[in-house]
Design a protein around this nucleic acid. Sequence first.
DNA 1: ATGGTTGATCCTCAA
Length: 265
Amino acid sequence: MRFATWNVNSIRARVDRVVDWLQRSDVDVLAMQELKCRPSQFPFQRFEDAGYEVHMHGLNQWNGVGFASRIPAEDVVEGFPGMPEWGASGLEARALGATFDGVRLWSLYVPNGRELDNPHYTYKLDWLKALADDAAGWLAAEQPLALMGDWNIAPRDEDVWSMDFFAGRTHVSAPERAAFQRFIDLGFRDVVRPYLPEGYTYWDYQQLRFPRNEGMRIDFILGSPEFASEVTGASIDRDERKGEQPSDHVPVIVDWGPDDRPMVF
DNA sequence: ATGGTTGATCCTCAA
């Protein structure tokens, strides 16, 4: 099976690209973030015509998470217990869980944080702590489980194009990196890094960041031990940042399952 | 060519 995650930055602006990519890439389940729409606005038919069912969670023009899959989704859950609210606007559409053929997946859009002294930064850290608290319990199920999405954290210095540029900014701060590391300490593994030690997943639209390859690695797939042990490959589809109307993020893909296992002795 | 973003509830906010 092939699983992927992609912050599509508006599904309505990019449905052609996303559906074309799904079919071309032979993906079974795609976790999507930043759909930027409510269910009534989602182009469900375009996915269904391509053989994919969609489950999505969207409340307004911001955030929005979902799954497109060739496998039926079971036990679909919006948000997680204890997920913090954002001020008066309440719960945001940043997490959707679903099970596909026994594999539990989460599509996650971690709050951006904006600046270190911004209330969104505290919200981001609180949100990650609440997720980790719940995810610790999910691991006890000893079921294949993966947390997939836009984490808005660059865990290593080499995950940003310039540490000088990011000095004093979000995504690289010690508290954010500690929040990410907590998932690793719980037993999750970055299942892409062993196959691809280098490579960005995001380039800002501004300042010619992509032509200059001034990007960030902030989209990750963290697998439980039961998930990680069945991963047989991974890729980052950098080409999806090219061409007409790209998202500012690119897809991150893992190949998974006993049927995909190459011969290992 | 000495510049340079995109998307949404679209002239302001979010990333």
